[in-house]
Amino acid sequence: MGFDLNRFQGAVDEELICPICSGVLENPIQLPDCEHAFCRDCIVQWLSRRRTCPVDRLHVSPDDLKPASRILNNLLCRLNIECDYSSFGCKSYLKLDQLPNHCNECDFNPEKPSPCEHGCGLTIPKDQLKDHNCVRDMRSMVVKLKEQLNLLTVQYREVRREVDKLKDCCRSIQSVNPNIPAIVESFEQDEIERWVQTLPRARIKRWGGMMSTPDSPSQEAVRKALIDSGCPIHLVTELMENSHERRWPPGLSTLEIRARNRFTYNNFVCRKIPGRQAVVVMSCDNTRMNPDMLLEPGLVMIFAHGIE
């Protein structure tokens, strides 16, 4: 539908008025032969009921519609129109093509996003500020974020299941195609590296806090944190098997050897396991380390304290 004629300063040329709604043309469209112009919504709605020009009744198909000419658009852009929010107090008149940008920024726009002045940091539509309650709305936002997180978790698990099915399928035909093992290995390595890059780098402040023989509850808590972080399921088992000194490489195998090598620890690239005093030391991150300090694909170190 077109713009209300009463919103414009001065007279408006008759050629700029839609014959259907009698308003000033909005998103104008022209017919190909007679070149009569109409508001886009008006002519589309008209043609859904009858296939003729509303002015001269010539046959028209919706496929025949074309954008209004540059001259017609230029004439429209020269018109001065009052702001959409004049009823809220805005006194501005502006060129028609400037109206959308002005309305988005207009201080009288009741839906203009405005920051809460009470410190919660939320941005609220202006007309809702009077009813805004920081605690209530923050809680509501947390609930929505949790719902989104739960949905993403479900979607992720579905994708993981499909990936595992694909890998199982590849493994099942390895005996048929000798190239398949290499493909599977490359696929799994790419998957591991993508996951590793999602973990933040960790800084160990106190290597003395490392638990070389962690108890079962500590290991189970770390296992769950690895799964929640998106670690590939097959990798979780391998990493947790490498979380005890009995599986560690020669350079970390005993307290005495670790004491001799303590100055090399700071060369490890460690990744923080979210929510836990634990890190993963992945071989793909530590290619410059001495081989006797590493395991494939990596190992887990659990600490009592001392991780940033």
Rank of each mutant, 00 (worst) to 15 (best):
M1F: 01
L5A: 09
L5Y: 09
L5I: 15
N6R: 15
G10T: 11
A11D: 14
V12Q: 11
V12T: 13
V12E: 12
L16C: 12
C18I: 05
I20Y: 07
I20M: 06
L25N: 02
N27Q: 14
L31A: 06
P32M: 08
C34D: 14
L47D: 08
C53G: 10
V55E: 14
L58E: 13
D63I: 05
D63K: 13
D63H: 12
R70K: 14
N74T: 03
S92V: 13
L94E: 01
L94S: 02
H102G: 08
E105Y: 02
P113Q: 01
S114Q: 02
E117P: 02
N133F: 04
R136H: 10
R136K: 15
R136E: 11
V143A: 09
K146F: 08
V159C: 10
D168F: 06
S175R: 10
P181V: 02
V196R: 14
R201D: 14
I204F: 03
M211N: 03
S216F: 11
S216V: 14
A225N: 09
L226C: 12
D228E: 15
S229Y: 07
L235Q: 04
M240C: 03
H244L: 04
E245R: 12
E245L: 09
L252F: 10
S253M: 12
R260F: 08
F263Y: 11
N266L: 07
N267E: 04
V269A: 05
S283R: 11
S283Q: 14
C284E: 11
D292E: 13
M293C: 12
L295G: 06
L295N: 15
V300D: 00
V300H: 00
F303P: 12
